[in-house]
Design a protein around this nucleic acid. Structure first.
Lengths: 217, 217
DNA sequence: CGGTTAATTGAACGCATTCAACACGAGTGG
DNA sequence: CCACTCGTGTTGAATGCGTTCAATTAACCG
């Protein structure tokens, strides 16, 4: 068993076909409304989740209410995998969403040991990579660069002309370590500079990839 | 083989006894001077490293020279484990240091498959946890809270009265996403508030744990 | 003891935040 | 169809936190 070296996979958060099948067989589908809690920060991490439809967001609340968004998960992606026995970030529906849920113990009990371990490792790698990028963004980038990086990342994996932003400004701000006002200002600024163009406040397309790339740093 | 659930271990970056033994048998000891490069950002990640003595720091350089320190590794800790085929952070000696190095392929070839996988998973978990804490710190904490958190973390695992800061102010700043000046100011501020006391600029002890804990948020 | 690097302190600046007002769109009901 | 509201997003002005630039002091090491 060689776990660690299937790095070719573009999207680490997407489970293998094998695990997907097993999850579909053993798991349960659950629906969550927009802003409904899927699991809470500090809950025991005993389930594995896969987004079926909609988008999920993970958040961490500080004692005084400050909020940090950890990540956004799109259909097909695995989430809820943690580096410890409990969830450090809670998960909520960013939109109404459907999620496939299965107990880790159930997977083990049905001989999906191998697939589970692989999926956990892959998902953990994905999380780590994501967290490291996020780290760099929060530690050393200006507001404008943060917003540019965010739009860039969104545009990259959509591939289509018209890119969708399923999250509101507050969620973007809490992801980027900024305020809604700053995010809004930077967006208008990027638009004024003819780098992106917004068709509505949740839809844009990239007008100048070169410039956006340069700003994303 | 059950990989994923040995969470009881306090220090995920420390390898198991078994792996340590194998690394000692198959690996090479290498010495690095202060600020000498151990591996570069973007190098292929084919080695596993363990700190024998001294302290190692990982850093990521942005195109324009801005620097983010990822982590500091103390004796016993594993480093160089990455979520992809190449290093996203480079590693350098923070101090003069000795490191035990072994090729992953050598470990596999000598039947240390199991130990290697386990160690990689544990180290990855450790990295992820660390990165998540770091994320929160950079995203939502004030300069004072960042410095307090940093001192807290340092003081926690030293246990002794007198806590040592092996890194200079620049490294602290680049870890915390601040400037040296700000770090310095916050340190004097914490000292003025009688929360910590510096015996020299690299040694301090905590005078008021309660207050420090509160500030670390 | 000088000589060098690291750390601290001060003052001015600037970026992001804060607070407040305004605009826009969707949904509701008259 | 318009008026009204509520949530969300944008814009403006003032404040403040952290940075920048510059000068001083402390620590280290021959």
């Amino acid at each position: 068993m060689t776990l660690a070296f299937s790095f070719d996979d573009a999207d680490d958060a997407a489970p293998t076909k094998a695990l997907t099948d097993i999850m579909d067989r053993l798991g349960v589908r659950m629906s969550f409304a927009k802003d409904e809690e899927i699991y809470a920060q500090e809950d025991e991490a005993e389930m594995i989740y896969r987004v079926v439809s909609g988008v999920v967001r993970t958040t961490c609340l500080l004692s005084d209410g400050r909020r940090q968004v950890g990540a956004f998960y799109s259909p097909g992606q695995l989430f809820g995998v943690e580096p410890g026995p409990e969830h450090r970030f809670g998960a909520e529906g960013l939109t109404d969403c459907v999620v496939q849920v299965v107990k880790r113990s159930a997977l083990r009990a049905h001989g999906a040991e191998h697939e589970l371990d692989e999926a956990i490792l892959a998902a953990t790698f994905g999380e780590l990579r994501r967290a490291q990028d996020h780290l760099l963004l929060l530690g050393r980038k200006s507001a404008c660069e943060r917003v540019a990086s965010f739009l860039m990342a969104r545009a990259e994996d959509h591939e289509s002309e018209d890119v969708d932003l399923p999250m509101g400004r507050q969620d973007m701000a809490d992801y980027l370590g900024l305020t809604i006002e700053t995010v809004s200002r930077m967006l208008t600024q990027l638009q004024s500079a003819k780098i992106v163009r917004f068709t509505s406040c949740r839809h844009f397309h990239v007008a100048d990839w070169r410039a956006l790339e340069r700003l994303a740093a």
